[in-house]
Write a protein that binds this DNA or RNA. Structure first.
Length: 502
RNA sequence: GCGCCUCUAGCUCAAUGGCAGAGCAGUGGACUCUUAAUCCAUUGGUUCUGGGUUCGAAUCCCAGGGGGCGCACCA
């Protein structure tokens, strides 16, 4: 689109002409000694404040109560010498009653030059129209910022998802649903912080730039530090740094932050996403399940005002019991065949093939069980369910189950067929951890780019002694999707990753 | 990365091989209680881009670009 500043004067309509018209308005104001972009404006009430305080005033009442409000012009109904304007701020909308007789001839003429999209500050008295609409009987209007571009249609809004995500500012102006979604996301994260503060956790910030990105199975982004002249990876998890802090004696730590995984996008994946990771000394995976449930139920209550949510058309109360089911049991139920990582590879390969899993030659028995789980049982999990007892060989940082050395003391929380959280009893035996790292390194060398490397500094930390520890990671974006009731991750990320325009 | 779908005015959408249109927004006019105000008039187009087929292409074909969905990868 050609939307550069026009030097000549477009006539007629269209975007260029519209911008020229509005720019001319700005010039005219400056010519008259007015400031179209003043530095500040002090309002006495938000639009919802006015509603709360005067919402029950009878129809046709004019009060003497003065208010100063601000907002963006969203609708304009001009009946000649009386104009009704709907303005909106971040949480509400309110009508302005602009009467020529009240505001005066000169100001009325100036008001008529305002456009949809302009930001204005208004002084007046609170009234209710004969039709019962709460309004501000306006006696003064200040232009706070001129909008040079026209807004999308107020009622149809934006439908093109590309435009909505690229121009999120426009989406947020016209789409109350979008504003609500991000408000829920904010409340959810704020709730996490309150809950964790109540449990005596401390919030920390650890490096995003890693020499070797570890703590998860994923391919990292590579970047470069110029003066150190070295390649660095963006972190794929926060885990290993937080556990160093457990070694350091911080006992209860968490970080809410961004991690980066060099993978494709989907309705459930964005290359950068947000995660809450927390670690608690002297706890194990069962305690982590309790905390997960508490964090999420509390967040739902505080962000939505209820624990009742809709999961693909089905009403679910998050406050109900969350079942804890072993992965191998769920697979057995779904396939009718008992499975265990100790079984011969051939048996599991055959079962995987029968359920449509594309078997990689390098897949271990544990990996096959996980894939069979994903192919058969995962999609039927709607209500919150802890899937536990993952095969140990796909859980290189988790402790072995105290009753079954082939399984990990690990859980993943699934809701609506999506993984929301992951936690375990943390492996704190440095010798065992080295063996696991070495196995990862071998798989990596064999061509599995998602596998990890040996992190010597982390091993050194463990050698100083890490207390028994429970760890948890919660996918912020996916949980926000669940609470906001949206079905793509781009709806809960303000600026999702997109290819550049043009 | 592969497959399918999609892209028309600032926004929302029509036009299915035969004159590129409507509603909203904009512009001009009327109106002092509107509620997506209403009424009259009216401006506005690189039909994503580049090729091709055809007397004629928004429409059919090819290539490219953006987006969506599915698969793969993954949380």
């Amino acid at each position: 689109m050609n939307d550069g500043p026009g030097t000549d004067e477009p006539t007629g309509s269209g975007l260029a002409a519209e911008r020229a018209r509005r720019t001319a308005h700005v010039e005219d104001l400056r010519g008259d000694g007015a400031e179209p972009y003043p530095y500040r404006f002090d309002r006495t009430h938000t639009l919802n404040d006015v509603r709360r305080q005067w919402g029950d005033v009878d129809s046709g009442t004019e009060t003497d109560d003065e208010v100063t409000v601000a907002g963006r012009i969203l609708l304009w109904r001009d009946t000649g010498k009386l104009i009704f304007v709907t303005v909106g701020d971040r949480r509400g909308e309110l009508q302005l009653f602009i009467s020529k007789a009240v505001i005066g001839d000169e100001a009325f003429v100036a008001a008529k030059r305002l456009d949809l999209g302009d930001l204005i500050g208004v002084h007046g008295t609170v009234m209710t129209t004969r039709a019962g609409e709460l309004s501000v009987r306006t006696d003064r209007i200040d232009l706070l910022a001129k909008a040079l571009r026209p807004l999308p249609d107020k009622w149809k809004g934006l439908t093109d998802t590309d435009t909505r995500f690229r121009q999120r500012y426009t989406d947020l102006i016209v789409n109350a649903e979008a504003r609500r979604t991000f408000e829920i996301r904010h409340e959810m994260v704020a709730s996490f912080r309150r809950t964790l503060a109540g449990l005596d956790f401390v919030e920390v910030e650890t490096p995003v730039l890693h020499v070797n990105a570890g703590g998860a199975l994923a391919r990292p982004f590579v970047t470069h530090h110029n003066t150190l002249d070295m390649d660095l990876h963006l972190r794929i998890a926060i885990e290993l740094h937080l556990k160093r802090l457990i070694v350091g004696g911080l006992e209860r730590v968490y970080e809410i932050g961004r991690v980066f995984r060099n993978e494709g996008t989907s309705p459930r994946h964005n290359p950068e996403f947000s995660i809450l990771e927390l670690y608690q000394a002297y706890g194990d995976h069962t305690e982590m399940m309790d905390i997960t449930q508490r964090l999420i139920v509390t967040a739902a209550q505080e962000a939505l005002g209820t624990t009742q949510i809709d999961i693909s058309g089905e009403g679910v109360d998050l406050a109900d019991e969350w079942p804890r089911r072993r992965m191998i049991d769920l697979v057995a139920e779904a396939t009718g065949v008992e499975v265990h990582p100790s079984q011969p590879l051939d048996v599991l390969r055959e079962l995987a093939g029968r359920h449509g899993v594309a078997v990689q030659p390098a897949s271990s028995t544990g990996k096959l069980i996980e894939e069979i789980f994903e192919a058969t049982a995962e999609s039927s999990i709607k209500r919150p369910t802890f899937v536990t007892g993952h095969p140990l060989d796909i859980s290189p940082l988790a402790r072995a189950d105290r009753d079954d050395p082939a399984l990990a003391e690990r859980f993943e929380l699934f809701v609506d067929a999506r993984e929301i959280a992951n936690g375990y009893s943390e492996l704190n035996d440095p010798v065992e951890q080295r063996t696991r790292f070495e196995a990862e390194q071998r798989l990596r060398d064999a061509g599995d780019a998602d596998r990890g490397t040996i992190d010597e500094d982390y091993l050194r930390a463990l050698e100083f002694g890490m207390p028994p520890t429970g760890g948890l990671g919660v996918g912020i974006d996916r949980l926000a999707m669940l609470l906001a009731g949206v079905d793509t991750i781009k709806e809960v990320i303000l600026f999702p990753t997109l290819r550049p325009e043009q």
